[in-house]
Write a protein that binds this DNA or RNA. Structure first.
Lengths: 241, 241
DNA sequence: CGGCGGATTGAATTTTCTCAAGCCTCGTGG
DNA sequence: CCACGAGGCTTGAGAAAATTCAATCCGCCG
C-alpha cells in the first residue's frame, strides 16, 4: 500500500531491519537502504513468547513467515493417530513457516522452548515486494532452497542406524548453529528436554540420557544439566560418521 | 532471448508442456496458452537415463531443476566420512534439484532406479520468466514449500522408533504417490532395492526384508518380488501410527 | 520448603543388527 | 535357447543395542 515515494525520505534513517542483529541470517540479501526501508514497513514487529507458548497451531491460517530474533522454537507435527513428532528445532536468525506457503495452513505446531521474540513477515506483502525487487525474490527462493537442504541434512542424521551416531551428529549440528550465532566456543546449550531430543531422533529419552553420559565418561564432553562443553571435536566428529 | 513477440503465432499450437502428462504435478499453475508456450521454449528436453545412470553428481554445477517425466530416481547424500545415505525417492511429475539453488552446486547424487526421462528447467531462465509472470513465480514458491512439507513428513516417518512403523509409513507413502500417478489400486511397485529402503529408513536391509515378510504372514499384503499388493489398508494404517 | 517435571540409573525384555549360508531372478553371453 | 553369474533377497542363530518399566535423584519455581 505504501508506495516507494513515501519511504524516500527515510533512506538515511536506520531502519529496524537494518539494525537487527540477525539480519544476515534472516534475509541475507544485499538490499540497499531504500529497499531495507521497504522491508522494514512490511515487517510486523514483534511477538514475545514465553516458554511453552505456541507461535501457531496445526491448522492455523498462514499469515507469513516468522523470523526468530532471539530464543528458540520447536516444531511438532501430528501423526494421523495423534502422536506428536518433533520435526525441528529453530533458533535466532532462522525463518519458520515455509512449510505452510503451499497449503496456506500451518501443518504443525510451533512452540517456544524459552523466551523468544519473532517478527512476522506477511507473505502476500513479501511476494508483492518481491515483484518490485527481483533480488528480494531471488533471496526468498534461495532461503527456501536452503531450508530444503537443511532438512536433507536432517534426513542424513536420522538415516543412521546407531543412536550414538545420531546423537553425535545432532550435537555437532547444534554446536555449529550456535557458534554461528555467537555462542561460546565448545559450548552447546540444549534448549530442549531429553524427551524432545529423543522424539526428534527416534530414540527413547533414556537412550539419549545414557549416551550423553557415556560420551561424558569417554571424555568427549562434560554435562552440566542443559549445558554441554565439547572436549574432543575430532572424536565426536568420528562418531558422527 | 526469444521474445514474446516471436511466440505469439504459436499460441494455438499444442506445446510439448501442454501435452505433458505430468504437467499438473510438475508445474500445476493455471498458465494460459501463451504462457505455456514461453515455458515450452524454456524447457530443455529430454534426457534419457538408463537404470543406474547418474542425472547429476555431488558437486556438479547447478543448471536448473529436473522434472521427472517417467521413471524414478533416488538421491543420495554423502556423509563427511564418505558413507552414502539415501535422502529420497522421486517419481514421475516430481521436481528434483531444489536443494541446489542456494549453493549453486548439487549437494547429492541423483541416480536412475529404472529407465527414466527428465526435462531440464534452466533456473536462471525460470526466474527471468517468473518476473514476467508473477503467477509462475508464485507457483515456484509453492512448489518449494511443498517440497519442504514433503521432507517434514519424511522426518515424521523416520522419527518413530520401531522398524515396523517406519516401514508401514514408507509403504503407505509410496502407495499414495503411485496411486496419484495412475498406479494400480492396492499395488505398490518398489523401484528400489531392500538395501535402498533400509538405508533410507535407518534399518539393516535384513530387517526390511524380515518385516516385509512378517507383514505378508499377517495377511496385510502379498509380496511378488518388487511388487506388493496391499490387502488391508486400515491394519497397515494402524501400524503406521 | 515442597512439589513437579526433568534427568539418571538399573535390570529385564524385546528389537535390531551382524554374520553367514543359501536361494531366487534377471540379464548376458555362449 | 539355455547356462551361468552376479546381485538381490530370504532365513537362521547369536550378539549387541535399544526399549520398557521402575525407582530415585536433582533442580528449579512458586
Amino acid at each position: 500500500m505504501t508506495g516507494p515515494a513515501g519511504s524516500l525520505k527515510l533512506i538515511h534513517v536506520k531502519s529496524a531491519c537494518e539494525q537487527c542483529r540477525v539480519r544476515e541470517l534472516c534475509l541475507p540479501t544485499s538490499l540497499d537502504g531504500m529497499q531495507l526501508n521497504l522491508m522494514d514497513q512490511l515487517v510486523k514487529r514483534i511477538k514475545h513468547l514465553k516458554k511453552g507458548d505456541y507461535l501457531y497451531h496445526t491448522g492455523d491460517e498462514f499469515k507469513g513467515l516468522y523470523a526468530i530474533q532471539s530464543g528458540a522454537l520447536k516444531t511438532m507435527g501430528l501423526t494421523a493417530e495423534g502422536r506428536e513428532q518433533v520435526t525441528g528445532f529453530h533458533m535466532g536468525g532462522e525463518l519458520v513457516g515455509m512449510d505452510a506457503v503451499d497449503i496456506n495452513k500451518h501443518p504443525c505446531n510451533a512452540i517456544a522452548l524459552e523466551s523468544t521474540e519473532v517478527c512476522l513477515l506477511p507473505f502476500d506483502k513479501l511476494e508483492e515486494l518481491g515483484q518490485q525487487i527481483p533480488k528480494l525474490m531471488h533471496e526468498l527462493t534461495r532461503i527456501m532452497s536452503r531450508e530444503i537442504l537443511r532438512e536433507e541434512n536432517t534426513l542424513i542424521m536420522l538415516g543412521s542406524t546407531s543412536a550414538e551416531q545420531r546423537l553425535a551428529r545432532f550435537l555437532l549440528n547444534l554446536y555449529k548453529r550456535q557458534l554461528a550465532r555467537g555462542g561460546d566456543e565448545n559450548v552447546v546449550k540444549l534448549q530442549m528436554t531429553r524427551q524432545d531430543i529423543g522424539n526428534y531422533l527416534g530414540l527413547a529419552f533414556e537412550t539419549v540420557s545414557r549416551h550423553l553420559n557415556h560420551l561424558q565418561d569417554d571424555g568427549l564432553l562434560t554435562i552440566d544439566n542443559r549445558k554441554l562443553t565439547l572436549l574432543n571435536h575430532s572424536a565426536l566428529g568420528a562418531l558422527a560418521n
